[in-house]
Design a protein around this nucleic acid. Structure first.
Lengths: 216, 216
DNA sequence: CTGGTCAGTGTGACCAAGTCACCGACAGGC
DNA sequence: GCCTGTCGGTGACTTGGTCACACTGACCAG
């Protein structure tokens, strides 16, 4: 069974390119594993087939900010930056849910970029999307208040009105500090918008949350 | 005279691609002109031959942050994002020094991407560099203090120990507010590190400035 | 040489948010 | 049961962004 068929965006690849990619074997990565660290040299282009990988920016104080999540079918663009732009890189990629992924080595990647138009499209689209989402992160960080970012985060990531995440994790997602998140969550609980348990946030009043998310 | 020769990175282009680009005429853009606004559809790929274009992210409060400057030989990557990734875009590009630039229309751009390997390299490198610099902006905004960012900015942009810029402009460059910049500059002047005039900052003690820039 | 206008700057009060240094509370393994 | 580590809560403090002004010099029209 070809894994290429599973990767949205690569499914319509030309036969030559498919054949070339099919020679590569997917590998599995357990939750918590770091794919690369700041300053590390990059081995190739990573495509995620299953699970999820989060890419962080880590600050000197140890605080870190979620840049974006790589979902199945998407690729970890960061890994190609060094390959193309030169500079070394201060991000970090961590497997968040047990993942299956393919690492396309440098040579294969460059060859495919040369020969396959569809592959180029795939890579370019990936780049463009990452750039967009990084701009959004920047925008939110610079211009919106913590309360609004928090509300957005809860709405986006909750499943069935429930978000399983520690305050520290939420803080990372919205680029803030744990204490600040704790206080804001507390305030929202007192207002009756949420209910808090250890490691879990229950949304009780989504409408108010939407309102907060949109204000500023 | 071919303008292509002037654009670093495009100079070594294959003859076919060169010929194609040479049919395009450079246009001039006066200082202050906006190349594109938030939400605008993009016409093509922009290469800057002379002058400088600054790309900003504008917040709802009117405050804006400098994402990066496009110098001669470089291209304004933002313009291609819509072309590839889809989403609309909330940045703004303003000509900062009278500029000469070439606009490669969508069709030509796509055709070149298809046929010319060197052109692809050029575009990719441009992408990677912008992404890197945006990461740096994000990093500084999230993790370093205003004083450090200010010092870095002064050191990087001063020519012969002199920076011609208003406090408001400096604030935009470092992603802060004018009042904050005024106060910090004031403090540095009182410490004897700077001398301030209207629209001009003179650096008196670069060593101390370097020290401040590196601390946090 | 007025007086008006405007960009650039100075200032104080206030609020939002990050930091530091804790402590308490709970869960799971032994 | 107890210990250990993660999770969450809290107060004091500092930094930085916002608001609402007042001040100043440059330049221009009258």
């Amino acid at each position: 069974m070809s894994w290429v068929a599973d990767a949205a965006g690569l499914a319509t690849l030309d036969p030559d390119a498919r054949a070339r990619l099919d020679r590569l074997s997917p590998i599995t990565a357990p939750k918590g594993m770091a794919l690369f660290h700041p300053g590390e040299t990059v081995k190739g282009f990573v495509v995620v087939l299953a699970g999820r990988i989060d890419v962080f920016l880590t600050g000197p104080t140890g605080r870190d900010i979620l840049l974006y999540a790589v979902e199945p079918g998407q690729s970890c663009v960061q890994s190609t930056l060094g390959l193309l732009g030169g500079e070394d890189y201060s991000g970090e990629a961590v497997v968040q849910q047990d993942a299956e992924l393919v690492l396309i080595p440098r040579e294969t990647f460059l060859a495919l970029m040369k020969t396959s138009e569809r592959f180029r499209e795939y890579v370019f689209t990936a780049f463009a999307q990452r750039m967009q989402s990084m701009m959004h992160v920047l925008e939110k960080l610079a211009f919106s208040r913590v309360e609004a970012r928090l509300a957005q985060c809860l709405l986006e990531r909750a499943e069935g009105g429930v978000l399983r995440a520690t305050h520290a994790e939420i803080a990372t997602m919205i680029g803030s500090a744990r204490e600040v998140v704790s206080r804001r969550l507390d305030a929202l609980e007192k207002r009756g918008v949420l209910r808090l348990d250890r490691g879990v946030v229950h949304i009780k009043d989504a409408a108010t949350l939407v309102h907060i998310a949109e204000s500023a």
